[in-house]
């Protein structure tokens, strides 16, 4: 079940770019803690999205499946936190697990029948899932306040104490992100991760090896949903506000843009992508509409002009050929990330 390609270390060239990115990222975080201010918010968003995209990556990059409806699970996490902490005065650390649990249950219930679908049907079904949850958030206004959204959500905290300022919140987010990435990396190199890689390579071959394909796909879907709900819940407490708009389709497109920029199928790709994409449109600061425009356009440009990166994805998607070459994908992913940032 273990293919040599998935366990071999990346080559020297593949290591240099990430090392530079790590150094730049660390310097940025350090500067944010010293200087404070708006950069803290930006990095907070980057961390939230990195968690969300790590989940997306788990389902798409590792397992080779597709979901355009991850915003549904983020919305469930975010709204559960928001409603329970504002209307019912629940503590943050009771509301958050409940939202994540609800998202996991929904993923299980929806994923069981839906993941049998393929291609356009799976894409449209997951897209519909995101739309359904968003519509419910709009229409169920007794609970969700409709378009107005829920404001004054308490910030992160525990045991009756709220974290004192944005820097402390950022520290908490970064710790959560570190945990999320560590878990993803452990899972990737576990028995589960190898099974998922086999499924991404070829479902039929995986089945022939005795892997319960449907079950593993479902597990990956639930894991992705848990990540999305976790990110959604943290978002609610970090920003203090949720509305249906927050968890719209643009969240999905933004997530994909980050995943492509950072490198799909790699452990640290979501981090890199989330950081770069969160920093880039700060030049458009204050123009929310321009941001989504920029993300969408950037994604199209990457999809069209980064055929090398797409080649690795093509293998995942068609589930043909040999076991996925994770090292090659990582190299392609990071170089693609640089190219995306340079444009």
């Amino acid at each position: 079940m273990t293919s040599p390609a998935t366990t071999s270390p990346p080559s020297g060239r593949a290591r240099l770019a990430p090392a530079l990115l790590w150094a730049a990222g660390a310097a940025l975080v350090a500067y944010a803690f010293v200087a404070g201010g708006y950069l803290v918010t930006v990095l907070g968003f980057a961390a939230l999205y990195a968690i969300f995209v790590t989940g997306l990556n788990f389902f798409m990059g590792y397992t080779g499946q597709v979901s355009f409806g991850q915003n549904a699970f983020a919305a469930i996490g975010g709204y559960t936190s928001a409603v329970l902490t504002t209307a019912y005065n629940w503590p943050v650390f009771a509301a958050m697990p409940l939202g994540i649990g609800a998202a996991a249950l929904l993923a299980l219930a929806i994923g069981y029948p839906t993941l049998r679908l393929r291609g356009h049907y799976l894409a449209m079904a997951t897209l519909a899932l995101g739309m359904i949850v968003q519509e419910i958030a709009v229409q169920w206004d007794r609970v969700t306040m409709g378009y107005t959204g829920i404001a004054a959500i308490p910030p992160l905290g525990a045991f009756g104490r709220e974290l004192p300022n944005e820097r402390a919140q950022l520290a908490a987010l970064l710790a959560a992100l570190a945990l999320a990435v560590w878990v993803a990396s452990r899972l990737k190199h576990s028995r589960l991760g190898h099974a998922l890689a086999a499924i991404a390579g070829s479902e039929d071959a995986a089945r022939a090896l005795g892997i319960d394909v449907a079950r593993y796909k479902l597990i990956a879907f639930v894991v992705a949903a848990v990540y999305a709900a976790f990110a959604g819940s943290m978002f609610a407490h970090f920003v203090g506000f949720v509305s249906p708009e927050v968890f719209g389709l643009h969240m999905v497109v933004l997530g994909f843009t980050m995943l492509y920029v950072g490198g799909i199928g790699t452990v640290y790709g979501p981090l890199v992508g989330a950081l770069i994409i969160s920093l880039l449109p700060e030049t458009f600061r204050g123009f929310k509409e321009f941001q989504d425009l920029a993300y969408g356009a950037a994604l199209i440009v990457i999809l069209i002009y980064a055929p090398k990166g797409l080649a690795s994805l093509a293998r995942l998607w068609t589930r043909r050929g040999a076991a996925p070459d994770a090292a090659a994908a990582a190299t392609a992913g990071t170089s693609r990330g640089d190219a995306g940032a340079a444009r």
Partner: peptide, 25 residues
């Protein structure tokens, strides 16, 4: 380039967002 179906879906979805936002502006 014979891009995969998934890439095509994602690209047209991104086009959707871009045009939506242009209309909004």
């Amino acid at each position: 380039r014979n891009a995969t179906m998934f890439v095509m879906i994602l690209a047209t979805l991104a086009a959707q967002i871009v045009i939506e936002r242009l209309t909004l502006l």
